[in-house]
Design a protein around this nucleic acid. Structure first.
Length: 475
DNA sequence: CTAGGGTTAG
C-alpha cells in the first residue's frame, strides 16, 4: 500500500485550511481526505490517488467519495453516477447514497431503478433506504410507487421504523392520497414531530388548509413544539385560509423562540401577510430578509398586484430584474395579475410576449387565464377568444368562463353564444352558463331566446329529480 | 461511515 504522494497533500494544505491541521508525518487516510473535500477539484485528486494506489476497490473509501459527489452542493451527480457504475460491488451504503441523490433530481424514477438493481444484486435495503425511496415517489407524485415501496417496507419488517413510516406518510400525503396517509398516520402509536409535520404538510400542499390547521392544533395539544418546517406549512395554510390572526401568533411564537427566519420560512411569512392584505407587514418582513429567492419576490409582487397596488407590483418586478433574480412562470402570473388589476393592457401584452422571448418560459394555462381576464376587462373580446383558440392545448371550463363573464360585462351576445357552446361541449350539464346567457338575452329584450334557454334548463333540472330520468329515457 | 422535514400562482 502506497502512502499518498506529498504533492497531493501539499495541494490540499494550500487550497483549504481544513487540511492544515492534519499531522504532517502521518498522512491521513484517503477516506478522511475524501471526507474533507470541499470541491470537485479536490475530490478528483483524491480519486486519482485512490486509483494510482490501487485502493479504488476499497468500498469504504469509495463510499466517502461518492457521498461528496452525490450529495454535496458543490458535488456532481454525473460524476457520482460514473463512480458508482465503476464500483464492482457497491455496498448498501453506496446504494443508499445514490438513491438519496437520485430522488431529488429531475428523474426521481432513477432512484426506484436503483432499488430494483440493489435487490437484484442481493444487497439488502435498510432503514436508510426507504425514506429516500418515498421521497422519490413524492417528487413524482406517484401513489402507485408509494404503494409498491410500502409493500417492501412491510415485507422487510420495517413498518414500525419511524423514518420509514414518516416517509410513508409524506409519500402518500404529498402525492395526494391523503386518506392513505391519514390511515398510516392514525395507526402510529408514537408520533414524532416529523410525522405530524409530514401529515400537516400533505394537507397544506393539497389545498386542505383547514385540515392542516386542525391537525396543527391537535399537535400542539399533544405537547409537541413545532419547528421551522412545521411552521412553514402552517403559514402556507394560514395564507390560503385567510387566517391572519393565527399567522400573526405564529410570527410572535417564532420571535419568542428565536426560530431563524430563513428564506423558506420568510417567504411563507411574506406570503401569509401579503395574501391576507397586510401589505405593510409583508413588506416589513420582505425587506428584513437578508436572503431572498424568486419565490419570496413572487409572493410580494403577487400580494401587491391583487390588493390594488398594481404599479407597485410592476415596480418591484423591475427591482427584481435589477437584483439579478431570474423570474419564473409564477413571477409572470403575478406580473400579469398586476396588469389585469391595474388595467395595463399594453404592458400585459408586452409581458406575455416577453416571457417566451426573453426568458424562454412557455406560457401555461394560468398565463392565458390572466391574459383572457385582462383582454376581457378591457373589452378586447375577439382578441381574447382568438388567444384561447390559439392555445396548444384544449381550453377548460375555467378559462372560457372568464371570457364569458367579460362578455356579460360588455353585453356582447355574439361572442357569449360561441363561448357557451364551447363550455357546453366540455360540460353538457353546466346550466349555470345557460342562466348567464338567458340573462343576457333578457337584458337585450330577446324574450324568445330567454324562453328557449329556460326550457332547456328546466328539462335539465327535471332529469335530476328521481323518477323523471326513467320517464325521460324511455321517451 | 448515512437519515428526513418547508416557501411562491390558480
Amino acid at each position: 500500500m502506497f502512502p499518498p504522494k506529498p504533492s497531493i497533500i501539499k495541494h490540499f494544505t494550500n487550497s483549504s485550511s481544513s487540511f492544515s491541521s492534519l499531522p504532517q508525518n502521518s498522512p491521513p487516510s484517503l477516506s478522511i481526505l475524501a471526507d474533507r473535500c470541499t470541491s470537485m477539484h479536490q475530490l478528483k485528486q483524491v480519486h486519482a490517488q485512490m486509483i494510482t494506489s490501487a485502493r479504488i476497490h476499497d468500498t469504504f473509501a469509495a463510499s466517502r467519495l461518492l457521498s461528496f459527489c452525490a450529495l454535496s452542493n458543490s458535488g456532481d451527480i454525473n460524476y457520482a453516477v460514473k463512480l458508482f457504475n465503476y464500483t464492482q460491488e457497491p455496498n448498501n451504503f453506496m446504494y443508499n447514497t445514490m438513491i438519496r441523490a437520485q430522488a431529488s433530481t429531475e428523474n426521481p424514477s432513477n432512484a426506484l431503478l436503483l432499488y430494483v438493481q440493489m435487490r437484484r444484486m442481493n444487497v439488502l435495503p435498510g432503514k436508510h433506504t426507504f425514506p429516500f425511496l418515498f421521497k422519490a415517489c413524492s417528487n413524482m407524485k406517484s401513489i402507485c410507487g408509494c404503494k409498491q415501496v410500502h409493500s417492501h417496507v412491510i415485507k422487510l419488517g420495517l413498518d414500525l421504523e419511524l423514518h420509514a413510516v414518516n416517509g410513508l406518510v409524506r409519500g402518500y400525503s404529498v402525492s395526494g392520497s391523503l386518506s392513505d396517509a391519514r390511515q398510516v398516520f392514525d395507526e402510529i402509536s408514537e408520533r414524532n414531530l416529523s410525522i405530524w409535520t409530514s401529515m400537516i404538510c400533505g394537507y397544506a400542499q393539497n389545498d386542505y388548509s383547514d385540515e392542516a390547521l386542525v391537525l396543527f392544533n391537535q399537535m400542539v395539544d399533544h405537547g409537541l413544539e413545532p419547528n421551522g418546517a412545521t411552521l412553514a406549512s402552517v403559514l402556507s395554510a394560514c395564507a390560503r385560509e385567510g387566517c391572519l390572526m393565527i399567522g400573526e401568533k405564529i410570527e410572535v411564537f417564532m420571535i419568542e423562540k428565536g426560530v431563524e427566519l430563513g428564506v423558506i420560512l420568510g417567504t411563507a411569512l411574506v406570503h401569509m401577510y401579503a395574501k391576507n392584505g397586510a401589505l405593510i407587514k409583508a413588506r416589513e418582513v420582505f425587506y428584513s430578509m437578508q436572503e431572498k429567492n424568486v419565490a419570496t419576490w413572487n409572493a410580494m409582487i403577487h400580494g401587491l398586484a391583487v390588493h390594488g397596488h398594481a404599479e407597485a407590483a410592476l415596480e418591484l418586478f423591475r427591482k427584481l430584474k435589477i437584483e439579478g433574480i431570474v423570474p419564473n412562470g409564477i413571477t409572470f402570473v403575478a406580473v400579469l395579475s398586476a396588469c389585469c388589476h391595474g388595467g395595463f393592457l399594453e404592458e400585459g401584452r408586452k409581458f406575455f410576449r416577453s416571457m417566451k422571448q426573453d426568458y424562454n418560459i412557455e406560457p401555461k394555462l394560468e398565463h392565458f387565464s390572466c391574459m383572457v381576464d385582462l383582454l376581457g376587462r378591457e373589452g378586447k373580446l375577439i382578441e381574447a377568444e382568438q388567444l384561447i383558440r390559439d392555445m396548444k392545448w384544449k381550453a377548460d371550463v375555467m378559462i372560457w368562463g372568464a371570457l364569458l363573464s367579460a362578455c356579460k360585462k360588455c353585453g356582447n351576445i355574439v361572442v357569449a353564444e360561441r363561448v357557451v357552446n364551447e363550455i357546453l361541449e366540455l360540460d353538457p350539464h353546466n346550466h349555470g352558463v345557460r342562466v348567464i346567457l338567458s340573462n343576457m338575452y333578457a337584458e337585450d329584450g330577446r324574450w324568445e331566446d330567454v324562453l328557449s334557454q329556460r326550457k332547456v334548463i328546466k328539462e335539465g333540472n327535471l332529469k335530476k329529480v328521481p323518477g323523471w330520468s326513467s320517464v325521460d329515457d324511455g321517451a
